[in-house]
Amino acid sequence: MHPRFIIYFLIGLAVVLVPVFVQSNYWIYMFTMVGIFMVLVSSLDLAYGHTGLVSLAHAAFFGIGAYSSAILQLKLAVPILPALLLGTLITAIIAAAIGWPMLRIRGPYFVLGTLAIGIAIEIIIHNWDGLTGGVSLSGIPMFPEVTIFGTTFDLSSKRFFYYLVLAVLVVTQILIRRIVNSRTGRTFASIRENEDLAAALGMNVSGYKLISFVAASTIAAFMGGIYANYMGAIEPEIAGSHMSFNLLVMIVVGGTRSIAGAVIGPLLLWFVPEFLEAAQMYRPLFFGAILIIVIIFMPTGIAGKLRSLHPRMAKWIP
């Protein structure tokens, strides 16, 4: 076996065994959150890295997914699993309805439009308190206990969610790899590289932008639904432009179109500020500084920089 795969296997094993060795619930929570960010960053990469759509509304769809699933459970007493799927479907429809007119807009106007939509959705969630609970929606049910073959699993435990998020992350990455390495993915790349040429070669540019946008939003929405049940309470801020900005920073810093990038970005930007003194206060400074340094000195992100160091590195960094 190639040494590369042994390393990958060891990393994978370590990730799977984290909850066995880490006893502190706090650290399990931290790793789970980083996993959630990795899923969001991976899905944003489909729109931003692969299709070239700079979206500042990605967190909005995470938020709509979280809220619609939670509201279905709280107000209509829908069981968790159907609520999660229905919430994701609702968000996909909203994403399509927003994306269809928006994606005809090009360049900076598109970015501005997504920014406005992100802010507008946060304001709507905040003010529509009859439905969304205003500043916070709490009391979202936990996952139940399940007994299979006489063994009881507590699905509300922090450890279960760690594995759940890990599974969603792996499935997300597999989905994205499959989409990217196909006719659809090649069309995304064409749109990113030269929109006019793509149209001149018979590609339905707005149609494929919509596919990319909705697919990315749907993954974020599904993750949002799980997040709602994990936290038990959600706030409008999770849908806000600030959150969307953080996701964009993570993808730019980590590196687009790369599994390593989608892992490095969230790891770095989630954990490093934790180790800083007075972390909350220094976080914006740290985010901004690292973003500017990376964008000036490593235009392809950390993963891209590592790849370009040596031809062999390019093979090692997925």
């Binding site: 900005f245 964009l248 920073v249 400074l285 985010f287 901004g288 500084a289 973003l291 964008i295 000036i296």
Partner: peptide, 8 residues
């Protein structure tokens, strides 16, 4: 994106 970073 750099401008956003500078704002931050």
């Amino acid at each position: 994106i750099a401008a956003l970073g500078l704002y931050s």
